[in-house]
Design a protein around this nucleic acid. Sequence first.
DNA 1: CGTATGTTTCTTATGTATAAAAAACTGGGG
DNA 2: CCCCAGTTTTTTATACATAAGAAACATACG
Lengths: 294, 294
Amino acid sequence: MRTDTTFKRAFNEMIDVLRALDLGAELPSENVLRAQLGVSRTTVRKVLASISARGVIVSEAHRRIIREHPQQIERFPKEQTLASSEQVETSFMEWMLRDNACPGTEINEAELARKFGVATTIVREFLNRFQKYGLIEKRQNAGWVFKGFTANFALELFEIREMFEMRSARLFATLPDGSPIWKQVSAMRAAHLELLADIDARFQDFSELDSRFHRLIAAVAPNRFIESFQDVIAIVFHYHYQWNKRDERTRNEVAIREHLALIDALESRNLASIDQACRAHLTSARETLLRSIA
Amino acid sequence: MRTDTTFKRAFNEMIDVLRALDLGAELPSENVLRAQLGVSRTTVRKVLASISARGVIVSEAHRRIIREHPQQIERFPKEQTLASSEQVETSFMEWMLRDNACPGTEINEAELARKFGVATTIVREFLNRFQKYGLIEKRQNAGWVFKGFTANFALELFEIREMFEMRSARLFATLPDGSPIWKQVSAMRAAHLELLADIDARFQDFSELDSRFHRLIAAVAPNRFIESFQDVIAIVFHYHYQWNKRDERTRNEVAIREHLALIDALESRNLASIDQACRAHLTSARETLLRSIA
DNA sequence: CGTATGTTTCTTATGTATAAAAAACTGGGG
DNA sequence: CCCCAGTTTTTTATACATAAGAAACATACG
């Protein structure tokens, strides 16, 4: 049976929506809420019914009134708001990084499904999607093989990354002054400086900023294949560094400074500087990853 | 229920194996046959049992003897030797290219499953794998959208293709004389000349040769992400050109000559010539594809 | 009439079932 | 002992079932 994670997520969000409204106010229409929460009206109605049953709102003649602010209502815990297909990703990455890092390990769909507590269909679907990350390989009529989080993997990854990133960065040199991208670049610098100022407390926020930074650079000339490859990079860094915490703070601080240098170079529109800053960052990122694998 | 396409394929292949043996000869062991046919011993035994039931071979005390050459035995038709998951690819590409080429078309899993006569699971799995080709996109809790076989698609595809191909081709300039790749390059030239000599009759064989040629060039320095991208190129060319036959013969002849020029350039080890030949071919291939889309 | 809610229908997400295929186990002969 | 064929156990490929969610349709109210 399908899980009701969409409902639970919408329910949690609806609590926030209600909190922002005054007592006695009329709720927005189902259609407005639908757009706001990003779900179907069917789900909105289900959430409203559920909240109504708890007495937080009352329906009267085609309108809904807020009776009390939902302070007491408990939110659904985060795990219950993730579809099984999403949970499997986390389970799998943990299995991979913690338990069975060794290359050549055979992956057994049935066993994983049992271990993760989901149907085999889900595991299968996940593995199919996960294939693009280059870490597993399918063998006809047999299971999958884990190819290993190896130095080779990192080198192949960075070879592509370098091609793509240099290509995008270089395009900034000819980007017209009026492009809206420059605004985003400048906002990106601010975000980096902000994080740098508070690096001791917030160094763990870097992973997400890193991904946003590289996606912004790639966005200078959209290419679906490059965008898809960003997913590969993002997942690798997200999980690998989550698992390997050595020198995390220093590592991130260095990367932030390299990003800032690259931003300066981009804004200078000087091709040589761009090349240099970009390559410097990629080389350093590669070395860091390689060191953490060895 | 799972289809028995593996059995049928093995059965067809076994017929060839038996034909190559003398009457009265003893069959190789199950294990040897298993390796030869590339299936499990379970399937080999099933095939042997089936052929045995038709009286072509007799089992006596731990050995199997060929009694007659299987001229009469009918092979299973090709369609029955393809797993549903493989058939779906063809069905889908035909649906896409013939019926619904327009961008933005919504793809309905259930409807496709009905149309193709397979379970929804299979269609779903296919779409998940097919996502990497950049032609479809998934929307949360809703179906998929066909993004269209558009000029933009072709341009993005070729931007990546050019980066990858130039990278590989350039590496040939520093490839040591002793590398086994040179033998394959020379064999590749022979294959091209052979096809060229008989181009009027065999121009349809080019698609496969093309794919092998570009994979060989990439093989100079293996990179899983580049290899994976070759699949994208291969499928696009295979199906798109199968559907668009305009000027097929001329188009292929031109490409063969460009390939030959590139082979010469590679063997010259001259970087400038390699760059030039490689770029010339890619430009021409891109123009051809764009023209056929417009 | 247009917008909002109530109702019905269709589709997707995910579990379960099962034949086909693979792999593991077994006893026997050279 | 190694290899071989017979047997049993596991796993995969695929079909099918169903609740959740989306979309389409219908009705009512201002």
